[in-house]
């Protein structure tokens, strides 16, 4: 990503967050508003500064590309979508069933298929069973850590 784009994107992100908090601060007053207001003003000024800086860099041709590593966008999107779906189904299926589905599904989708689909499925199933057992024994049995329960299980 070019540094000018990074500056503008970060400036806009800061402005959006400051704006969202400002919109929520309508009913606040006194000491409850003092600290957030100082931060909102600081962030608004900083966000504008970054946007202007990015625009100036772009105009002057000083926006050298940052040395970013290449990103496998598809894999990032898949694991992000998978994680959202996983957290969303926990209240329905319960922690263990949802985790088993997520672990198996994600390892099938994301691990490479060099050894064939059958081998991949076996490895994914073994990984799912081992991790679920580890979590159940380590967290639930030994430490007594509660896990989210679902409507079904």
């Amino acid at each position: 990503m070019r540094s000018s784009v990074a500056d503008i994107a970060s400036g806009l992100a800061v402005l959006v967050i400051a704006g969202a908090f400002h919109a929520q601060s309508g009913d606040l007053e006194g000491v409850s508003l003092l600290f957030p207001r100082m931060l909102i003003i600081f962030m608004a000024l900083g966000g504008i500064y970054l946007c202007v800086l990015g625009l100036l860099k772009g105009r002057k041709g000083e926006d050298a590309p940052q040395d970013d590593e290449p990103v496998a966008v598809t894999r990032v999107v898949m694991i992000s979508a998978g994680a959202i779906a996983y957290v969303a189904i926990i209240p329905v299926l319960g922690f263990y069933l949802a985790s088993a589905l997520y672990l198996f599904g994600m390892s099938m989708v994301l691990s490479d298929a060099s050894g064939g689909t059958r081998k991949k499925a076996l490895a994914s199933a073994a990984f799912t069973v081992v991790l679920c057992l580890f979590v159940w024994i380590g967290f639930a049995m030994l430490l007594g850590v509660p896990t989210p329960e679902g409507m079904l299980f």
């Binding site: 926990i90 691990s111 990984f127």
Partner: peptide, 22 residues
């Protein structure tokens, strides 16, 4: 791949354990 997927599951149980809240 396996480490990353496992971290997601451990993050879920670890964060839930703080206040028992989704």
């Amino acid at each position: 791949t396996f480490v990353a997927i496992a971290i997601v599951v451990l993050s879920v149980i670890g964060s839930y354990a703080i206040r028992n809240s989704m």
